[in-house]
């Protein structure tokens, strides 16, 4: 059984093919970063324009990579939400039409379910149940994964997503878009103890929610104060980046540990773009009370492989989408049905 996965929910076009016997057999990605760079953020209309240009050519490339023809496919999975509506529509309609033309089933996949299950594509994978920390430019979530399709959000950001706070702080320090990774690089050269930034909502609240907008403001006030004193040097900026990163990541780690303690789970899966953060990886690797799993980097950020895999599980579960194609820019994870099938 071979499933084509199509991901177009934001600023990356990802296409992959999952084979039940062999796993991911082909995987391609086109990133639009250079398109949005000059605007300092994703421009939805430009994202849609790039998706319609790239999706079908990438599908052709991916099939060629796998040495397959379209008629060798048994199903098509596309991201149906959450995400940018115009971007989602391109992948959803192309995928649904291709499936109709090939007379095979199609399924609309929840983007976050893709991220949650991406760790299962790895040879060293967690067993169910596990706790997932999803951290990206759009999300900061702690999710209890009780079983396939059974997700409970137990913690989330009440304002900015952690990746968004990284990007905005990076912009403040004059780093190029997308700033998050650049900020993390700068932080590696800084002294994280010169400035102490508050750990938001850690001590004053016992729950598992996050808040990063205050931290971003704290970085801004600190930086502007130093600029006013004529201390705007490369090393000062690196120290601010390091203090910001330490505060943000320490908070993620502390809340994840709190969630593990509350749920009694012993495995943590970290996914989303921020899971590439080296400080986060180093900190979690030191932990001995629980095991941490990171999908490989290309499956941490948006990709077609996770959509192909989640779609495979859903199709195998007997689900499929109708001819009337709908996308869901907002789509709570809790609306998903459980998946009865065994892990393939």
């Amino acid at each position: 059984m071979r499933i084509l996965g199509i991901e177009t929910s934001c600023d990356e076009t990802g296409i992959a093919i999952y084979d039940r016997e062999r796993g991911i057999v082909a995987d391609t990605l086109y990133s639009q970063v250079s398109v949005h760079e000059r605007y300092g953020g994703v421009v939805p209309e430009l994202a849609s324009r790039d998706h319609i240009r790239k999706t079908l050519p990438l599908i052709e490339t991916t099939l060629n990579q796998a040495g397959l023809k379209a008629r060798d496919l048994d199903g098509i999975a596309y991201t149906a939400g959450p995400g940018l509506v115009g971007a989602l529509l391109v992948g959803a309609l192309l995928g649904r039409s291709l499936a109709y033309g090939l007379d095979i089933p199609a399924i609309g996949v929840h983007h976050m379910e893709g991220h949650l299950l991406a760790a299962l594509l790895e040879p060293l994978k967690p067993t169910l149940p596990f706790l997932a920390l999803l951290v990206s430019g759009g999300h900061t979530l702690l999710v209890e994964v009780a079983a396939l399709g059974v997700y409970r959000i137990i913690g989330q950001s009440i304002d900015d997503a952690v990746g968004e706070a990284f990007d905005k702080t990076a912009k403040l320090l004059g780093l190029p878009y997308p700033g998050g990774p650049a900020l993390a690089q700068l932080a590696e050269r800084g002294n994280p103890t010169r400035f102490h930034f508050p750990r938001p909502m850690l001590l004053d609240r016992a729950d598992l929610d996050f808040s990063f907008s205050g931290l971003k403001t704290h970085a801004m006030v600190t930086y502007k104060g130093l600029v006013a004193k004529g201390e705007d040097t490369e090393s000062t900026r690196a120290d601010i980046a390091a203090a910001f990163q330490a505060a943000a990541i320490d908070t993620l780690v502390a809340k994840s540990k709190r969630a593990l303690a509350q749920t009694g789970l012993k495995q943590l899966v970290v996914a989303g773009g921020v899971s590439a953060n080296q400080y986060l990886r180093r900190t979690l690797e030191k932990e001995t009370e629980f095991e941490t799993f990171f999908p490989r980097l290309k499956y941490c950020t948006d990709n077609g492989a996770m959509i192909a895999y989640a779609g495979y599980l859903r199709l195998q579960n007997g689900e499929h989408s109708e001819l009337t194609v709908g996308v869901k820019p907002r789509w709570p994870l809790s609306e998903l049905k459980s998946i009865q099938s065994n892990l393939g």
Partner: peptide, 17 residues
């Protein structure tokens, strides 16, 4: 714009299949 892409995505998917 969105409508144009919808029609083109459908035409592309069907024609490719």
């Amino acid at each position: 714009f969105t409508g144009l892409r919808v029609g083109i995505a459908v035409a592309q998917g069907l024609a490719f299949a």
